[in-house]
Design a protein around this nucleic acid. Structure first.
Lengths: 142, 142
DNA sequence: ATACGATCTACAGCCGCTGTAGGTTCAAGG
DNA sequence: CCTTGAACCTACAGCGGCTGTAGATCGTAT
């Protein structure tokens, strides 16, 4: 039987985060000692490891909830799992494209600025005047 | 004299966001009509445009605050502006590297899964077992 | 028996907004 | 001049995904 601290340490999670996952129903309510402290078994350890690893791959808690639900029905088609992973991949690719555009624009801005004084700083000029900006950055940065 | 709605529209901002910027001291407290409604001039329009454009390039509100402060001292060296922009570029590059690793891992996961049933799904297996994962994803995703 | 680290609950705060409720003001049309 | 209705006002709650705090209690090693 594992304490919450041990569980947290083994999965690279903070104790508060484990309690937070319980609060939002992502982790089950565990058994308790007589004094009221949480005690976990291997099932919970695996579940938390799954959650943490999915988070590291950028899945939202909602997506993880779906994945956990799906993995509880081993006989079902895994098409839905595939769909969730592909959706995540598309999101990652969209963010990549966005960030690449930002990088290009930042590099250009920085490269252009040969000024000494703030008054002539190209970086500030570009920020002041959208028209000087070549990047197509109308979507959110996240 | 511009109403908050006009100001917002011209800069692609929401009205609440303008008020929020005022609340956190990023936008100045504007003049008011007799009835208490905010009225803005061109200075505020430019300032808000600067803020929005910087946000689109991913600068944090704190960084923007610094940039705005710096641009108020035109005689100063622009080395600090340069430093802020370079820091932002480094952050973008770090996020890019991270996202590229994620993309690779997601692609691999998806490509490997030829199963029909959830029970044999490679995607879920990889998520369950960190060891199967080639990606180096210990840092936060954001 | 005691000390002290770990755990408990409850709640506030982070970023950067966004939305809501319930009330007031402004400007255009009749 | 008066009415309408869109735009404005304040105050506050909520989003995601945690993280940190305070003050109390528990568990275990000595």
């Amino acid at each position: 039987m594992l304490s919450i601290g041990t569980l947290a340490k083994r999965t690279g999670t903070k104790v508060q985060t484990v309690r937070y996952y319980e609060q939002i129903g992502l982790m089950p309510e565990p058994g308790r000692t007589e004094g009221g402290q949480r005690r976990y078994g291997d099932v919970e350890l695996d579940r938390l490891a799954f959650i943490r690893h999915s988070r590291q791959l950028g899945f939202s808690l909602e997506a993880i909830r779906e994945l956990l639900d799906l993995s509880d029905s081993p006989e079902r088609s895994c098409a839905q799992v595939d769909a969730i992973a592909r959706r995540q991949l598309r999101e990652v690719e969209a963010r990549l494209a966005r960030l690449e555009a930002l990088r290009t624009e930042l590099q250009r801005m920085i490269g252009e600025c040969k000024a000494d004084r703030v008054a002539d700083c190209r970086i500030l000029e570009v920020l002041r005047d959208h028209e000087e900006c070549l990047a197509d950055h109308d979507r959110p940065v996240a």
